[in-house]
Design a protein around this nucleic acid. Sequence first.
RNA 1: GCCCCUGUAGUUCAACGGAUAGAAUAAAAGUUUCCUAAACUUUAGAUCUAAGUUCGAUUCUUAGCAGGGGUACCA
Length: 592
Amino acid sequence: MNIQESLENAVKDGMKTLFEVNIPSVEFQETRKEFEGDLTVVVFPFLKFVKGNPFEIATKLGNYLKKNISELSDFNVVKGFLNLTISDNYYLQSFDKINNSKNYGIKKASNDEKSVMVEYSSPNTNKPLHLGHIRNNLLGYSVSEIIAATGKKVYKTQIINDRGIHICKSMLAWERYGNGETPESTGLKGDKLAGNYYVKFDEEYKKEITSLIAKGASEDEAKKNAPILVEAQNMLRKWESGDEKIISLWKKMNQWVYDGFDKTYEELGVNFDMNYYESNTYLLGKNIIADGLKRGVFYKKEDGSVWIDLTEEGLDEKIVLRADGTAVYMTQDIGTAIQRFKEYPDLDSLVYTVGNEQDYHFRVLILILKKLGYAWAQHLYHLSYGMVDLPSGKMKSREGTVVDADELIIEMTDTARSISQELGKLESYSEEEKEKLYKTIGLGALKYYILKVDPKKRILFDPKESIDFNGNTGPFIQYTYARIQSILRKVDFDYSKKITNITLHQKEKDLIKLLDYFKEIIYNSALNLSPALLANYTYDLVKEYNSFYQILPILGNDNLQEKILRTQISNQVGNTIKNAFKLLGIDVPERM
RNA sequence: GCCCCUGUAGUUCAACGGAUAGAAUAAAAGUUUCCUAAACUUUAGAUCUAAGUUCGAUUCUUAGCAGGGGUACCA
């Protein structure tokens, strides 16, 4: 609340007047429900500056504040906690402010703000997207939206990993065993078709290894010399030298995969402002290495490979260029980052949404860029998130142990359908409207399930236990929104009038407090790159509203003043749910 | 070996160093003449261990223990 700022100053003044000390900062917290009051000043930290009994200090301070701050209606002291009661009129005023701003808490993009690039998704073009990618996409998209809501311009981007040995593997397997299959001929999504051949390659590769070992080769030799692998490597060389036949096969199969991805992205509701392709960026960075070598940032080993020594920073030595002069992953990441800041002069910072298995890589990358002297390197962030694991362990596309993204979305929609049909509240809806709703609810459940968890934490997903639709879930929040819309449809009076001089119910105060908090939550979520904060806030708001809804009559109230205020609160809770969910990439239904 | 992340009710998640650690789910009981019961109200249940810092530690420090990841001329 804004009152917190004026109170902070008043507390400082009070401590100065009463005890002649300067307090550097004041700690406020919500008053716990079991105590009387709205806002609490923690007095304990003041003991460093004033000797004495915390209870007495708090009491003196309370008297001072009550005298000097008109919005304060009362106070009480428990131990070292000074509980302040804010007047109802102050609540009504701050609610009026919320009501009058169009999308409270959401800042429009302004031109003076610097822009942020968020990279996420970044798929390989040899296999379909799975649950792990879903987490990545939801996080990246949501963080982009949240940052944008703080007024910054955001570029959403993905770098598509469209080249390399793994791509050649599925190309080779298709060439050998595909019999000219296409997405059209099989009816399969293109990414699924390509993925099947990636799996096929691995099967054949394993067979060859087994047979080589049977013939007396060692395991290492067998892995290295399996003919199918040698052939794939050969294909990669041809690709790099621009062999027309290979390039055209590569283009064809990649296009299949892009078409498939586009469908999945559309289902998920994520999008990008621009794409980068690794086939365009994989040679970047080499000149930077050469330059850094001259300046002594890097050093060359006898065999010609180039390294950086990060032992002073507590890390290891890291290779940045191979002995044969070819680039490694790090090389192109260095080059790509530099290129992006060149291409977008308004760019201030860059967020990489990448799994925590690459924590080390990004620490090194950021450090190298700093050492190379790029000032913007201190605004690079790795949005690192935990893996989504199955009870059986890690998901591996090669071995087919994955939860497929498209299938999961379908399953969630199916569950929503069957629950909804059982409840049977949608008589007036057409089949088309119903199907759209089922998808909204199913995706809402999935997205919320993933986003409510702190990104850092790993998620263990058990396909046997389906994702909940009750409790702290997306559908619970969507349901509350739908109920609010139902109320608003029934309103037959004007509720635009500002309400003053009314005694507020505790539930009304709690809701106004929470609504007010929305702005701060967005700011915190952006700062911490954590949609989970926003998700949990929304849940708290909804929980509070449902309790309010149950206890207090809204439309059935005889008192017009109260009726108007409660309708306004309902409306505002609805708006906040909708806006919060929009930042999470989740839709809300008008009824369900 | 070294480095990073995570350990909270049976399970899934919360808690700027603050009061009696909150929710959900599963369990038990209740609430529909009343704005959508996908809701609400009760009951029972947890901070990995040990030291330390602090008026106060789930939170910070150190040492263990457990799980995950990294430490490649793979990406």
